[in-house]
């Protein structure tokens, strides 16, 4: 399995002793701090957590708690100011340009606003998930390898968009666009999926369908998921692990079943006030 191979590589690089009994987490975050400017307020004030190979982990919390920042730090769309982010055994913060690109292509990301290129076709949007593996010549003329095209068609069928392959992305409805986003992320054959509020631009019914689809696919491809979600009910339904953030601090970390009313009250204390 891919993950285990990667952990093994990571272990060798870090010179860690091989532990057989406890699996090394896919992602480990230690003492993460983020502030957007040197003098500005800290968004994250020292977060520690780990994501294991079979986790579907939700980050919940009131708006402004730093959920989105946390997710974006993992693939460095936002630069952290302090702490370690160990992904597949490598410290993401220490990667240079090329290494970061190679790391990013192993990370699938699904966005709140879908982030599709509206004027491109659905097919091209899905294929753009392979750009990290595509050379300059192929990407200039948009000639993707046959396997990529076949995989894109498979995935589009899997998310139920087989009839919209050649439509332009802006002709689709919100739910359909997010399915294109899912297909694009899975095109990368990701080893971890980051979801940044994947449902908050969708209505409740479609949100549930989309989350169910993501969960199904994540289980099928055995991809761990780190997800940030506004809707607590939806998080408890879909995820097996919950991390609660409040004002830059971690307030809760544990299995979804273990979450009690008072934990929620504590996380959302700011909003109650």
């Amino acid at each position: 399995m891919r993950h285990e191979r990667n952990f093994a590589e990571g272990r060798e690089e870090n010179g860690l002793p091989a532990e057989r009994e406890r699996p090394v987490p896919v992602l480990e975050v230690r003492n993460l701090k983020v502030s957007y400017s040197a003098s500005g307020p800290q968004i994250l004030k020292g977060i520690d957590f780990a994501v294991d190979g079979d986790d579907f982990c939700a980050v919940i919390g009131p708006s402004g708690a730093g959920k989105s920042t946390l997710i974006r730090c993992v693939n460095r769309l936002v630069e952290a100011s302090d702490g370690d982010i160990i992904l597949f055994g490598q410290d993401v913060r220490k990667l240079n340009g090329g290494e970061l690109r190679r790391m990013r292509r192993r990370i699938g990301m699904i966005f709140q606003e879908f982030n599709l290129v509206n004027r491109m076709s659905v097919m091209d949007n899905v294929l753009s998930g392979r750009l990290g593996y595509t050379g300059a010549f192929r990407s200039l003329f948009k000639v993707f390898p046959r396997e990529d095209i076949e995989r894109a068609l498979e995935l589009l069928e899997r998310v139920g968009l087989q009839d919209h392959v050649d439509k332009r992305a802006d002709e689709l409805s919100g739910g359909q666009r997010q399915r294109v986003g899912i297909a694009r992320a899975l095109m990368q054959k990701p080893e971890i999926l980051l979801l940044d509020e994947p449902t908050s631009a969708l209505d409740p019914k479609i949100s549930r369908d989309v989350m169910r689809l993501i969960k199904e696919l994540a289980r099928e491809f055995r991809v761990p998921v780190l997800c940030n979600i506004h809707d607590v009910q939806l998080a408890l339904e879909t995820c097996n692990r919950i991390i609660g953030l409040q004002d830059g601090y971690k307030k809760f970390d544990g299995p979804a079943e273990g979450m009690r009313k008072q934990d929620l009250d504590e996380i959302y204390a700011m909003e109650v006030l």
Binding site: R2, M123, E150, E157, E220, F221
Partner: peptide
């Protein structure tokens, strides 16, 4: 509907798609 197996191996039916639309 065929599913993509976990290791990324693509099973038989080959889907056709071409950028060239007549």
């Amino acid at each position: 509907m065929t599913a993509i197996s976990a290791d990324g191996h693509m099973p038989a039916p080959v889907r056709r798609w071409s950028r060239y639309k007549h």
